[in-house]
Design a protein around this nucleic acid. Structure first.
Length: 513
RNA sequence: GGCGGGGUAGCUCAGUUGGUUAGAGCGCAGGACUCAUAAGCCUGAGGUCAGUGGUUCGAUCCCACUUCCCGCUACCA
């Protein structure tokens, strides 16, 4: 039986068009999905859109369009983004789909039957203009009017009937779970935040709303709709056809291997979600990972600052793979990352064009000119050849381990180092001086080609299109890529034709200022 | 305010369970080569590892204080 891997992105809230943060989450998820795929796993990779809630309803009203039509349109832009980013997602779920409603209502019933949901009243100081509730200590009285201290807007006392989830009951089980499953939340600092939050005490959670209608109805009370988070989180299950636990998808892929999310929604994933699952007696996902934000030059991107880097525009200008590579390489995974167009250009020139692209080119061209355009047949490895080739062999398990710990930076640093070594190898061996020694020349060329092939395999999860382009040198295609085969030093078919390839990455001409 | 993380080369960041000359990439300067996208390779410049005090034979790494930055501190997601 194949090993299974189930990874999810957040489902995106389509109240606005996709931005770099969405692109980042998706690209990273795709990286893991592709890596696991070439490492022999059966992969389920889910992304989608979260389409309920007051904000969506209002946005649609504002534009005077039907709410579902509004969602259809914006959800499509996210579907398009998946294409643009070349994601290998195996499904795309929308919370407005029937399959999802069915699952959410089933889960609701489970929770209610287990006495984890009860009907009560929600009370609090509400500001209509802020759309927010405030605590007693966040308001003050001025001229007999209650106002919110932070925004100075009027607040009114609201009492609304609401269903509650007994979150408080799960405080101890959650803490216990965190302790017995130290890898449940990553990275470590986020885990600490979550734990300290839970330790500070959990109140029951209001899980229904009466004030608006755009959502999934509470099964036995049509006046209420289900709180968006209980709704949204459930997508990870509905995409596997839960509650049909005999369904192949569910049997194969639950519990999820990784829910990849941004740090801003960690609480919902690391506290509410596991609490819901515990209450419904469903197994918990293996890992929740909250990555950082993508910032533009130290600041959050904002229109007024004019520092927005729109993923689509960047891709149109530089291409997809450079963006994928840059985001994965330059952002220290787990932390916030500062990106800039200038750094992106530097990265393209030094890493992709000069280092990887040029390596492919120099080795290939040399082989074409000196080995009759064929992969050398007669070779005899020497110490220095095996030294560089065997290094890969000895690192595969280590790389797998690092990937399972989401240590993306290790992975890409390993590749970059390999590129330096490869270029150095070719330099030191000086095959252009070995024209009177065909055996040696052939061996060096073969070794060079093997290295290009190994590195191209490793680069596939990061820059799939470029990797495949490079592999055309050897007539290799996607189905040939196999991570384990990196330890094979004689993978390439000897005596087979070598193809000339176009330049992989064009250098960016930088402006002089 | 409380809890947590952090301040390391011009820039982005690693690292040290305390031990002789503190690392990488980019950028910068010089050199040898020429297969290659004037790419690659070699060498070098550049840091009082935020500050002060303490523990220690010895601290960038441990402790205390100071200072600056950031995150979390429940129902907008």
């Amino acid at each position: 039986m194949n090993k299974k891997f189930y990874i999810t992105t957040p489902i995106y809230y389509p109240s606005a068009k996709p931005h770099m943060g969405h692109a980042y989450s998706s690209i990273i998820a795709d990286f893991f999905a592709r890596f696991k795929k070439i490492d022999g796993h059966e992969v389920h990779f889910l992304t989608g859109t979260d389409e309920h809630g007051l904000k969506i309803q209002r946005s649609a009203e504002k534009q005077g369009v039907d709410t579902l039509e509004f969602c259809n349109k914006i959800s499509q832009t996210f579907r398009d983004l998946s294409k643009t980013l070349n994601l290998t997602n195996t499904d795309f779920i929308r919370t407005t789909e029937k399959r999802h409603k069915k699952t959410v209502q089933h889960l609701w019933n489970e929770l209610e039957n287990n006495d984890d949901i009860y009907l009560s009243k929600y009370t609090g100081w509400y500001s209509v203009s802020d759309e927010a509730f405030y605590n007693e200590d966040e308001i003050e009285e001025v001229d007999g009017n209650k106002i919110a201290i932070s925004s100075k807007s009027n607040v009114e006392w609201i009492e609304e009937e609401s269903y509650f989830f007994r979150l408080s009951k799960w405080q101890k089980p959650l803490l216990n779970y965190y302790e017995t499953h130290p890898n449940f939340i990553g990275p470590e600092t986020r885990k600490n935040e979550v734990i300290s939050f839970v330790k500070s005490g959990l109140k029951d959670l209001s899980v229904s709303r009466k004030s608006f209608s755009w959502g999934i109805k509470v099964p036995n009370n049509k006046n209420h709709i289900i709180y968006v988070w209980l709704d949204a989180l459930t997508n990870y299950l509905s995409a596997l056809n839960y509650p049909d636990t005999n369904d192949e998808l569910f049997k194969n892929f639950w519990p999820a291997s990784v829910h990849l999310i941004g740090k801003d929604i960690l609480r919902f994933h690391a506290i509410y979600w596991p609490a819901f699952l515990l209450a419904a007696k469903i197994e918990l996902p293996s890992r929740i990972y909250g990555h950082g934000w993508i910032l533009s030059g130290e600041e959050k991107m904002s229109k007024s600052k004019g520092n927005i880097l729109d993923p689509i525009e960047i891709i149109n200008q530089y291409g997809l793979d450079p963006l994928r590579y840059y985001l994965i390489k330059e952002v220290s995974f787990g932390n916030d990352g500062n990106i800039s167009q200038e750094k992106l250009e530097d990265c393209i020139n030094s890493d992709l064009a000069n280092n990887f692209g040029n390596l492919c080119q120099r080795v290939t061209t040399f082989a074409i000119k000196n080995c009759e355009s064929k992969i050398p047949k007669r070779i005899e490895f020497q110490k220095e050849d095996l030294e560089i080739l065997d290094k890969y062999k000895n690192n595969l398990d280590n790389i797998r381990k690092k990937i399972d710990n989401q240590n993306i930076n290790f992975y890409i640093d390993y590749i970059v180092n390999s590129l330096f070594e490869a270029n150095k190898y070719f330099n030191d061996q000086e095959p252009w001086k070995k024209k009177d020694n065909p055996l040696r020349l052939n061996t060096i060329v073969f070794t060079g080609l093997e290295i290009v092939r190994k590195i191209s395999f490793m680069l596939y999860p990061i820059i799939p299109n470029s990797s495949l382009k490079a592999l055309k040198i050897f007539n290799l295609t996607e189905k040939d890529i196999n991570f384990s085969s990196i330890e094979n030093n004689e993978f390439l078919a000897k005596d087979s034709e070598i193809n000339e390839i176009d330049i992989l990455f064009k250098k960016i001409e930088k402006k002089n200022d």
